[in-house]
Design a protein around this nucleic acid. Structure first.
Length: 278
DNA sequence: CGGCGCACCTGAGTGC
DNA sequence: TGCACTCAGGTGCGCC
């Protein structure tokens, strides 16, 4: 399910109930996700402790514990976190179950197992987070997402702007769907080399990104009440995308054809009439 | 160093 | 109904 908006909506949903909860017991599947599940660290630092709050960095959820440890979860392509009432039967592809007080269970289900779970022990948490964050680009909803910042990074680069927006070391949290949608909104051709984008166009990309991501978060916000219960995940919010998945359809702005191609190995949708190289 | 292709894994959909 | 094949929202490695 997850790009930045979906992860953020998940975070906000969990924030309604999780802070203060005690993690009484943790169980896991016998399969690895992207990396092996850190069982020993989960038992040592998360089990028996209380959740303080939940933060987000890029598409990672950071569960801050009262003992200053942190559980870091990435949802990959198919990861879903649900907050369930105790007694929900286990399901195929459940990989992590946190049994909480207040008759609740936090569960991670991930069929493709591209997700990940890490634990930062209290003593190393600050340093580990520093290293972690250093390898991740600017948060697009922050004030640091600014033409100065981006243009300084792209002087020598020729990669397509779509690839740049999706590169987590440059910009955090933008995946294939929203990269397509943002560039349509900004009227920029996805193949435009980043070193040939003028400041004005960067300003537009930034505004479009903030707008598109914020709209997605807002529309997901209305589904937060679905968190309790098995069907509880917001997914892509039934948002009607303007270009993603619309190959062969008519452009909403100019009625010309929307093309589908592949950039950086990912499906790319755009209107060659509305979206130009500046 | 920058940029690209590919692997990782399962499930859904399509066409024969 | 079954089989073979394609594609999918993410990330990081290795290769040129």
């Amino acid at each position: 399910m997850p790009e930045l908006p979906e992860v953020e909506v998940t975070r906000r949903g969990l924030l309604q109930d999780l802070p203060g909860c005690l993690v009484k017991k943790i169980t896991w599947s016998n399969k690895s996700l992207r990396e092996p599940i850190p069982r020993k660290l989960l038992v040592r630092y998360i089990e028996g402790n209380r959740i303080k709050t939940i933060d987000r960095r890029a598409k990672f959820l950071l569960f801050r514990m009262v003992n200053n440890s942190t559980m870091v979860i990435h949802l990959g392509m198919t990861g879903k976190i649900s907050l369930l009432s105790v007694g929900e039967p286990r399901a195929r592809h459940d990989h992590l179950r946190l049994f909480l007080d207040k008759e609740k269970e936090l569960r991670l289900n991930d069929s493709r197992r591209f997700g990940s779970i890490a634990v930062w022990p209290p003593a190393e948490s600050i340093q580990l987070e520093k290293n972690f964050s250093r390898n991740i680009g600017v948060e697009p909803l922050s004030n640091d997402f600014h033409p100065d910042n981006l243009m300084a990074q792209v002087r020598r680069r020729t990669q397509p702007v779509k690839t740049f927006l999706m590169d987590s070391r440059r910009v955090a949290g933008i995946g294939n769907i929203y990269a397509n949608e943002i560039l349509f909104d900004a009227m920029i051709h996805p193949l435009t080399p980043v070193n040939r984008i003028p400041r004005q166009a960067w300003e537009k990309i930034i505004l479009s990104a903030k707008k598109i991501l914020q709209e997605a978060i807002n529309s997901g916000g209305s589904t937060i009440s679905d968190f309790l219960g098995t069907s509880g995940n917001p997914g892509y919010f039934q948002v009607k995308f303007k270009v993603y998945g619309q190959g062969g359809e008519k452009c909403r702005k100019c009625s010309k054809n929307i093309y589908k191609t592949v950039i950086g190995g990912r499906s790319t949708f755009f209107c060659s009439h509305c979206q130009t190289m500046k």
